[in-house]
Amino acid sequence: MTQWPISDAVEEMPPGLWIRRGAPPPMFSMHRHDDVEINLVLEGQLHYLFGGEPLTIRAGEIAVFWAAQPHGLIDSRTGDMCWVHVPFSMVLSWGLPEAQTAPLLSAQPLITHAPELAARIAHTAERWGEEVGGSDPGGTADAADGPADEDGAEIALLEIQAALRRILRASSRARPEAPADGGGSVPAARLRQVSDMAQFARDHHRSALTIADVAAAVHLTPSHAMTVFRRTAGVTLGEYVTMCRVAEAQRLLLTTSMRVTEIAEAAGFGSLSSFYQHVSAACGMTPREYRRQAR
Rank of each mutant, 00 (worst) to 15 (best):
L254I: 03
H224C: 02
S89P: 01
G72Y: 07
R291I: 00
L158V: 09
M81N: 13
H278C: 05
G60A: 13
G238Y: 04
L73P: 05
R245T: 09
I6A: 06
Q293F: 00
G44S: 11
G44E: 06
A9H: 12
T78L: 08
A249M: 01
L254T: 02
L73C: 04
T78P: 06
I121S: 08
F275K: 12
V84C: 14
Y240A: 06
T78H: 13
A233H: 07
F65N: 06
P287H: 00
I62K: 14
E53L: 06
L42D: 09
A282S: 15
F275C: 08
D196Q: 09
I121T: 13
A180S: 13
M1L: 14
E61M: 15
L157W: 03
S171F: 14
Q277N: 10
A249E: 00
H204I: 02
S185C: 06
I155G: 00
V228R: 02
V64H: 01
T210P: 02
R120P: 01
A281R: 10
L110Y: 00
T286A: 07
E262C: 02
E11H: 11
A208H: 09
V214Y: 04
A156S: 12
S106Y: 10
I211C: 03
C82Y: 03
S195A: 14
I38N: 06
H278T: 03
A249G: 07
V132G: 01
R127V: 05
I111N: 07
L42S: 05
R231P: 00
R206M: 11
R165F: 02
T56E: 12
T140F: 07
G22N: 06
R206Y: 06
A23Y: 04
A162W: 09
G133E: 00
Q100L: 14
P109S: 09
D8Y: 09
T56I: 07
M285W: 05
D181V: 08
A225C: 03
G183E: 11
